[in-house]
Every structure is written in structure tokens, then in C-alpha cells.
């Protein structure tokens, strides 16, 4: 067992809608962290939740000790959200006044909204809510950029790029790229790296 030392813990959550690719994004980020010498814990959910539900991957890192896979309430430092409503959902549970958020601006309608049982919040109110619950919010046109790259499924790469370019962490871009190279299939590599770069430029530019 690792011994208890008080090195700081970073808590990050990648959230979105089932099928948007948060699990892969979290796995790649964890690979980056491991490469950079951190102890990392990822908390994930598979199965039913992937069928259009709200999904969140908790990614936590520190040095010198094991961490539990779930972020405690109000302890979130960084939020990467693939969908704005999900950003708000996660913030209300885990956010705090200092939370840094990177949010894709494209909405995904819950089926209850499509069916008319619920209404999706007014965009202005939603963004206002997100801002009120964060220290800083960066909005990324992630879906649009993924579509421009020619692969809607590359949204997760755009968002990882935005995280890498945001300056919210000290993780190096090269590490991200090398992990993407080793961990994603060769036939998607080109588009994945392109999508990552687009996200990076958007966030750092």
C-alpha cells in the first residue's frame, strides 16, 4: 500500500451523452497522466448508461498514492463537457466557485425533450448557470470542428485538444499526441490528431 502523503490531488470530469466518446477521452487522458508520472484513478460507467444517458468519467491524479475513482462533492477543479446541459448537471454535483470548465457548445436533445415531455433550458440561462457555477468557462465549438475534420466521432479528440491547449493543466502536448498515436487505431489516427490539433489551437489561440 502506498503511504499517505499530502500531495495535491487534481480532480477532472469528462462528461457528455452516451455515445459521444467520453470513455476513450478519459482513457487517453489517464494514459497521458501515467506517462507524466502521476498516480491516476479513472471512474467510469459502461453498459446501459451509454444508451443516450448522461455519462461522466472521473479522472483524478496525484503523486505517491492511490486515489478512489470518484470525485467528492464540490471538489472538481476541471470540467470537460461535450454537451452544455451535461456541464451544468455535473457542476451542480461536483463544481465549486473555482472550477475551470471547457464546454462544447453543441446541444444534444434528450429524448424527453424531443418527445415534448420536457423543455431544454433556454441557451442564455443555461450558459449563465454554467458561468455562475464555474471560476472560468471556455466555450468550444467542438462538434462543428469535428464535423469540419470529417468525423463527428472525433469530438472527444477536439475536446482533449482543448484541454491540452487550455493551460488548465501542466500536461504536455507531446505526451497527448504520443498517447493518441499509440492508443487509437491507425485508420483513425490522422483525423484524430487533426481534431486534437484543432481543439488545441482553439483553446490556446
Amino acid at each position: 500500500m502506498s503511504t499517505v502523503v499530502n500531495t495535491p490531488v487534481t480532480n477532472l470530469i469528462i462528461t457528455g451523452v452516451g455515445g459521444q466518446g467520453n470513455v476513450l477521452a478519459a482513457r487517453l487522458l489517464a494514459g497521458v497522466l501515467l506517462k507524466e508520472g502521476y498516480e491516476v484513478a479513472v471512474g467510469d460507467v459502461f453498459g446501459l448508461a451509454q444508451r443516450g444517458g448522461s455519462v461522466a468519467s472521473h479522472v483524478r491524479w496525484t503523486k505517491g498514492r492511490d486515489l478512489p475513482p470518484l470525485v467528492p462533492g464540490q471538489s472538481l477543479q476541471i470540467l470537460v463537457a461535450f454537451e452544455p446541459l451535461e456541464a451544468l448537471r455535473l457542476l451542480t454535483a461536483y463544481g465549486n466557485a473555482e472550477t475551470l470548465a471547457i464546454v462544447n457548445n453543441a446541444t444534444v436533445m434528450p429524448i424527453g425533450v424531443q418527445a415534448g415531455r420536457f423543455s431544454y433550458p433556454e441557451p442564455d440561462l443555461l450558459w449563465q448557470g454554467i458561468r455562475e457555477l464555474t471560476g472560468k468557462t471556455m466555450i468550444v465549438p467542438g462538434t462543428e470542428m469535428a464535423r469540419e475534420v470529417g468525423e463527428i466521432q472525433a469530438l472527444n479528440m477536439v475536446m482533449l485538444g482543448a484541454l491540452a491547449g487550455s493551460g488548465y493543466t501542466e500536461l504536455r502536448k507531446e505526451t497527448f499526441c504520443s498517447v493518441i498515436e499509440s492508443e487509437t487505431p491507425a485508420k483513425h489516427l490522422e483525423k484524430n490528431l487533426l481534431a486534437f490539433e484543432r481543439g488545441f489551437q482553439q483553446a490556446s489561440g
Partner: peptide, 27 residues
């Protein structure tokens, strides 16, 4: 425990107003 009641209240208010459930769906 470290806990901001002010933030929690704000979060609860936004949640109540805007958090539409995301029901699971067939693909």
C-alpha cells in the same frame, strides 16, 4: 467538512430550473 453552502444553494436552484433528465434510449 469543507463545503460551500452558498454554492450548493446556487447549484440546487439551477438544477431545479434547468436539469432536464436524460432518459436512456434505444440507439
Amino acid at each position: 467538512r469543507p463545503w460551500s453552502k452558498d454554492y450548493a444553494q446556487k447549484a440546487a436552484a439551477h438544477a431545479e430550473k434547468m436539469l432536464v433528465p436524460r432518459e436512456l434510449s434505444f440507439c
